[in-house]
Amino acid sequence: MTLVSPSRASRLALHWPHWLSLPMMLGLLIVGFWAIMTVAAPLVAPYDPLDLVGRRLQAPSWEHWLGTDALGRDVLSRTLHGAVHSLPLAVMVVALSVLIGATLGALSGYLGGWVGAVIMRLVDVTLSFPPMLLAMAVAASLGPGLGNAAIAMVIVWWPVYARLMRAQVLEVREREHVEAAVASGATRPRVLIRHILPLCWTPVLVSATMDLGQVILLAASLSFIGLGATPPTPEWGSMISDGASQFYSWWVALGPGLAILTIVLGFNFIGDGLHDYFDPRSE
């Protein structure tokens, strides 16, 4: 066995990216695993998530690693298939929220005047409601279903990015290179798109990465109270709701609970790593 000399070990540590820490790598592994499950769950899961494959409320065994639920469906298979619904939903919600919020926030910060005032008053009104309460109200008015839950979550989340992007634009537009672009005769859209926005995306990217986990939690919460996924969809929140009614059959909620816990931690680890990567003070 060849030992690495102290000098070589120190050189490796010196050239190792400071942001690629153990939590960051762990987060990438966790999120990568669940991302693979969104595609490979039908191939990896031992049973169909909707089939009745065993006795109802059967405890974990070699045949059913996480047991069965109240209808005799395999909990492990349903947990793996839950990623097919939860992860794409979170990505779609965050992407739409960033698109809408960042666009309106950039216009508010750059144009100012009555346009900025109207946008920010709309942001203030939306943020004045507790996020969970607003999402519940919108989802209840639209009816249960993952699509309606996604709309409710976009309505809740876009103001966060609007306010964040506006703050970045207000700071960047005062820099010298922007003043030089304006003095050279560049049009206002060109100044915004070419000289301001490229310097405003770092906080938005870090926030969006962390919010992916929070969106999964909110989607699970809506499904838990019956405003998200509809039966028999194998969605993590609805599975935990089923487990809550079977208190002594702890395994029914164990699988989806661990899935939510790990993927939220994974996104938080990645967000922290991205923050360290983009933050010059962490060098």
Rank of each mutant, 00 (worst) to 15 (best):
V156T: 15
F267C: 04
L52W: 01
A83T: 04
I119D: 07
L71P: 01
A259D: 07
I36T: 13
S86R: 05
V204I: 15
L254H: 01
L99R: 04
M120W: 05
L164S: 05
V123M: 03
A186W: 10
F129P: 05
S97E: 12
P131M: 03
T68V: 07
A40K: 03
L261A: 15
L261F: 15
Y277H: 06
I263Y: 03
Y47D: 01
G27C: 07
G54D: 14
R11L: 14
L212C: 12
M153D: 09
L261R: 02
P17T: 06
R55G: 13
E179A: 13
V156R: 11
V91T: 08
I196G: 06
R8G: 00
A181M: 12
G54A: 15
V4L: 14
G257V: 07
T187V: 02
V125D: 02
L265M: 15
R175C: 01
Q246S: 12
T126P: 00
L258H: 05
I225K: 07
V154T: 11
F129I: 04
L20N: 04
S21V: 05
G27D: 05
L133H: 02
S97C: 10
L43C: 00
A40R: 03
D276L: 13
G213M: 10
R194K: 12
A253H: 06
A150R: 11
L212F: 06
S61G: 14
I270D: 09
A106M: 07
A253C: 02
V125F: 14
S108K: 04
L3E: 12
G105M: 10
H81Y: 14
E235T: 01
L104S: 08
G255K: 08
H81R: 05
S97M: 11
T230N: 08
L52H: 07
P203R: 13
P159I: 03
E179P: 00
S238Q: 09
L261V: 13
A244C: 02
P23K: 08
L29S: 08
H195Q: 10
L3V: 09
V264K: 08
L43S: 10
P6H: 09
V172K: 06
L22C: 04
L80W: 07
Y277W: 14
V204E: 03
T209A: 13
V252H: 06
A229G: 04
D69R: 08
V4F: 04
S128L: 06
L227I: 10
M136K: 03
I30A: 09
V160A: 11
D242P: 00
S245T: 12
M1L: 10
M210I: 14
L104M: 13
P23I: 06
A244M: 14
R173H: 06
D272G: 03
I119F: 10
I151A: 10
G228W: 02
P203D: 12
Q214H: 12
W114P: 04
G72I: 02
L261N: 02
